[in-house]
Design a protein around this nucleic acid. Structure first.
Lengths: 326, 326
DNA sequence: CTGAAAGCGCTAACAA
DNA sequence: TTGTTAGCGCTTTCAG
């Protein structure tokens, strides 16, 4: 009968090397109290047997966090991969792995339950959660959360500051008839809209209610929304888009209507994606340092793991990058 | 003295519920041999205590693969997030988590060692590995691997077929003076170049050696490379780009030289990124179903896990998508 | 239906 | 320097 394809354990190594299995443990863990020769021999045998310690057995004995769960709504939106990269890089510095899940709202509830069971901490966008993921005793860091959740870390983008900087820029350029393409799918539901309305109000600029139009968070969705906006408000000279992805849609719709960007219709994005630099005209946008966002989230995980109860929410302020679209 | 913040274990639940801890096990594992009432009560207590079973202890007792490692070279390249999405989705169907690592070649060797220790299978792009990752007894699936590696699964893109379809298209459009922007960073090092040269040779079209120019895999890199190409070969009427990212660079460089695309200089991409649809003019490209690529890779993992030794390499053929750039 | 006992692979005491 | 003994949290026999 053939030997079972079972992975070799520490005991197999011990047997093969003619030592007790604790000695093997010492060898592979680089402990001082072991004879160099024995160690070398043990290591050799281990190598030869293809031995690799079981992470589960190890984790059982010395429990320390090893895996971080990261939930993003949509890998297709170029915003998120950069956040992921930021998380992965900083997590690596702590020796943590990153488990990524990506799923729409539907997946969220169910997914999260099983997912969370497998990680030592959780960071992510939880759009449709009014409160913290329930029954989790692991640290949770919310990204762009609309509300503060007790016992959860949070890193947010200072949308208000960003929107105000954008509005200021548009006003500086002489625009008075503004419109907005907004999306409701984000965690900071309507934050951009509220800030936009408030900023204009503060400047005494009128904004018809239907000059803010709702859109899917996609290029074609934004194109349709823009047509609706410009149909009802052809006098619009500048459009504030929910993000760069939708801004691209706005530009396309404007072009389709024979409008020049920015002369006839200025377009302002949000996010600062590479994509925005590449289209014609290059997008003026409120740039967010997405990698840093990810890194900050990991920082919060660290604090939570260290026992901090209610870390103050961390904020990232977008920076106006003026290119050609506005 | 305050209670330690230790996570409740199965024993804590047992104590609280006044049963033995095996009974708790039965309850949480939905075993038949348990009184419904007891079960409900136990579950209640567990819930209330915030009990969650330890994945490590579980995995120790019933060893079954739970985590899949996924290595991609660059999260910033929009190609990879889609592959990741494909992997995550199919992995989820198996109840597997996905650990993502992203790292350049530098990270690769060292990273991989520690990374691989934590996963039950590995799929990814291993650019600079001539042979399979060593000393891994876990299943490995290579993406776009240049060479077959014993005992490893592989899913590859049929670059040759793609390139030939692209070349055919260019020739059909009447182009005879072709150039290529190639990158060396990929796993299928020089595969595109070789196919390109061969395809042209098969059609009896001359291709000067320096009409294939090497580029960084980035937009600005491709811009520079294109200028070099067009400086030495101003007669070029069509450029085959390594991928869509570089194709964007080619288009920009052409525009910068006052060339119209495609009239003065046609540009053909590879990959089929959303980005390509969004730029001006929209890119004609060889579209790869990236999600499917990821899904296929998971399929190979499954086979390897099932004990198959040398699965035949799986191939995906790019599809020509004709838009406006060529 | 429920409890007791063994053991998964490993590390950390403690002895020798 | 090495081996012995526990025990991490859990599932699975096997008795009761």
């Amino acid at each position: 009968m053939a030997a079972p394809a079972r992975r070799p354990t520490i005991k197999d190594v011990a047997r093969a090397a003619q030592v007790s299995y604790q000695t093997v443990s010492r060898a592979i863990n680089d402990k001082p109290e072991i004879d160099p020769d024995t160690k070398r021999r043990v290591l050799e045998v281990a190598e030869q047997l293809g031995y690799r310690p079981s992470r589960h057995a190890r984790a059982l004995v010395k429990p320390r966090p090893s895996t971080l769960g990261l939930a993003v709504p949509d890998l297709t939106n170029p915003f998120f991969p950069e956040v992921i990269a930021g998380v992965i890089d900083s997590a690596a510095a702590h020796g943590w792995q990153v488990n990524v899940v990506s799923g729409g709202p539907a997946a969220e509830a169910e997914l999260l339950r099983s997912f969370a069971a497998e990680v030592d901490a959780l960071v992510g966008y939880f759009n449709h959660l009014d409160r913290a993921p329930e029954g989790l005793d692991i640290p949770v860091v919310l990204l762009d959360a609309e509300v503060r959740v007790p016992r959860c870390g949070a890193v947010a983008v200072n949308v208000d500051a960003g929107v105000r900087a954008g509005v200021q820029h548009l006003l500086d350029r002489g625009h008075r008839r503004l419109g907005m393409i907004d999306c409701s799918t984000s965690c900071d539901r309507y934050q951009r809209r509220k800030s936009f309305q408030q900023a204009l109000a503060d400047h005494g600029i009128a904004l018809p209610a239907d000059a803010v139009v709702e859109s899917e968070q996609s290029v074609p969705g934004a194109e349709r929304a823009t047509h609706r906006l410009l149909d009802s408000h052809p006098e619009t000279t500048a459009v504030f888009a929910f993000n760069d992805l939708t801004a691209v849609g706005v530009v396309r719709a404007a072009h389709a209507r024979g409008l020049r960007v920015p002369q006839d219709c200025a377009v302002l994005g949000f996010d600062g994606l590479m994509l925005g630099e590449l289209i014609t005209p290059p997008l003026t946008t409120l740039h967010i340092d997405k990698r840093r966002l990810g890194a900050l989230a990991v920082g919060e995980v660290e604090r939570l793991l260290a026992g901090e109860r209610e870390p103050a929410p961390v904020e990232l302020t977008p920076e106006l990058v003026i290119r050609e679209s506005a």
